[in-house]
Every structure is written in structure tokens, then in C-alpha cells.
């Protein structure tokens, strides 16, 4: 069994002359809850897009559970669930259909699919809103649909890009609890968030990206020590990097 859930080696991604990700390398072990931090435009979302197949990249390699995301992209994608920052859905589709279709794309047979969709919608308290079109939902409910869609196929690696942006405290706490349950059950989670309190609460490992490069990586305890919070350390590291 491959111990690494995610291996990124020398990943390079350019948009024209702009280097968005500049040769980064890091691993996430199976069962890790990895907080991927960085200022806006640092390269977090671009890295996620490269992992999940939404973006091509110019250099390096990415493996998910030992599977190359380019050469064996179909097998690699079976392992991943993505909740992106943006609402990238058919806004006219019903909430339940959005989740249903995604379960189908992942090859879940019809009989099992209904149960999987019902379960994940119930988990996010979306059952009563299941027949509403996505565009009719509030911001928080939309976020729940995106999360349900990411989890319906029970992925081994869950990638959450700003999952709690714009959601109320209740959902945030429910989501935290749910993610912790998943992580305890052995799922690997990569989380990006600007809420460092959230990251401190959930993650056991932290990576900070700044200006397309990994500025720091380690256990949460490496960052939170000597009376300093994660936020203190984060500000120190990014400020130091920006001075370079």
C-alpha cells in the first residue's frame, strides 16, 4: 500500500509569463489533515487545479496514492473529491441532480447511487432543499451542495478549497465535526482556508505557499509553539518571504 496520499514533485505552472507555481514539492501522508495556506494569489488554487485535472502544468509530477494524475488520470481521479472555491455547477439544475450526476460520473450504479445521494444530502441537511434549483439556494446552501457533490463517491483524498467561506457558524461547526469524523475514518484531507483558527482546530500538518513557492511545511506543533499561534507564525513566514 502506498503510504503517500499525495506526492508533488517540482510542480511548475505558468500562465503566459506569470509563474503561478514555481517548482514546489511536498507530500501528504495517508490519514493526514493537511492545511494548505497562503495569501491570495500564492498558488493554492492553482496547485489544486493541477492535482484534479482542471489545469495543465508545464513541469513536475503529481501522484495520488502512487497514481500519476496525467498518465493514469482516470484512476487518479477516482480517488479524489473536490469542493472548489467557486460554484462551478449548472445553476439551473436541482441540488439533488447535481449530486446524482457526479455520483454517476464516478461510476456508482443507479441502485447504490440513490442511497449515496440521499445519505450525503441528509448529512448536509439538504434533504428539504433537494428539489430546488441551485440558483434558488442561499450562499450557505450552495456551499453544502458543493460539499455533498465532492463527497458522494466517498473519496480517499478530499480536497476542500475555502469550504467555509461565506457560511454561517452552524454549518462551519457541523462541517468541522464531519471532516474530523472522515479523517478519523482514514480519509486524507487537503484544506485551504483563510480562517487560521479553523486550520489550527482541524489540521495536523501545515504547508504555507507564498509567491508560488513552499515557504514552510511541517507538523502543526512545529508552527504552534513558544506561545505563538498559527496566525503569528503564518504572518512571520509570509512577511519574511515577501522581504526576500
Amino acid at each position: 500500500m502506498n503510504e503517500k496520499a499525495l506526492e508533488i514533485k517540482n510542480l511548475k505552472k505558468e500562465y503566459g509569463k506569470n509563474v503561478a507555481v514555481n517548482g514546489i514539492s511536498f507530500d501528504i501522508k495517508q490519514g493526514d489533515f493537511f492545511g494548505f495556506l497562503g495569501p491570495n494569489g500564492a498558488g493554492k488554487t492553482t496547485t489544486i487545479k493541477c492535482i484534479t485535472g482542471i489545469a495543465n502544468f508545464q513541469g513536475g509530477a503529481i501522484k495520488v496514492f502512487g497514481i500519476d494524475v496525467v498518465k493514469e488520470y482516470r484512476d487518479a481521479r477516482k480517488k479524489i473529491g473536490l469542493a472548489p472555491q467557486e460554484f462551478n455547477v449548472d445553476i439551473f439544475a436541482k441540488a439533488k441532480d447535481i449530486v446524482w450526476y457526479m455520483a454517476g460520473y464516478y461510476g456508482i450504479p443507479t441502485k447504490e447511487r440513490q442511497a449515496a445521494v440521499d445519505k450525503v444530502l441528509a448529512k448536509f441537511e439538504m434533504t428539504e432543499h433537494a428539489d430546488k434549483a441551485f440558483q434558488e439556494l442561499s450562499g450557505g446552501l450552495k456551499r453544502r451542495v458543493i460539499l455533498a457533490r465532492a463527497m458522494v463517491h466517498d473519496p480517499d483524498l478530499l480536497i476542500l478549497d475555502e469550504p467555509t467561506a461565506g457560511v454561517d457558524v452552524e454549518l462551519r461547526r457541523d462541517l468541522w465535526r464531519y471532516l474530523q469524523e472522515m479523517n478519523k475514518a482514514g480519509k486524507t484531507i487537503l484544506l485551504t482556508s483563510h480562517y487560521l483558527e479553523e486550520v489550527s482546530h482541524l489540521c495536523n500538518k501545515i504547508g504555507i505557499i507564498n509567491d508560488g513557492k513552499i515557504a514552510a511545511i511541517g507538523e502543526l506543533s512545529d508552527f504552534v509553539k513558544d506561545g505563538k499561534t498559527l496566525e503569528d507564525r503564518y504572518l512571520e513566514i509570509t512577511a519574511k518571504e515577501n522581504k526576500k
Binding site: I54, R77, K78, L82, N88, V89, D90, Y105, G107
Partner: peptide, 17 residues
């Protein structure tokens, strides 16, 4: 439209060839 509203990402991230 899938490009425009980015719902094309749904099939790009899925295990579809």
C-alpha cells in the same frame, strides 16, 4: 455554457476519459 459557468470542471475532475 459549460465552459462559461465552469461546470465543465465537473467532468474534468471525474474519472471519464
Amino acid at each position: 455554457f459549460m465552459k462559461w459557468i465552469r461546470s465543465i470542471d465537473e467532468i474534468l475532475v471525474a474519472p471519464l476519459s
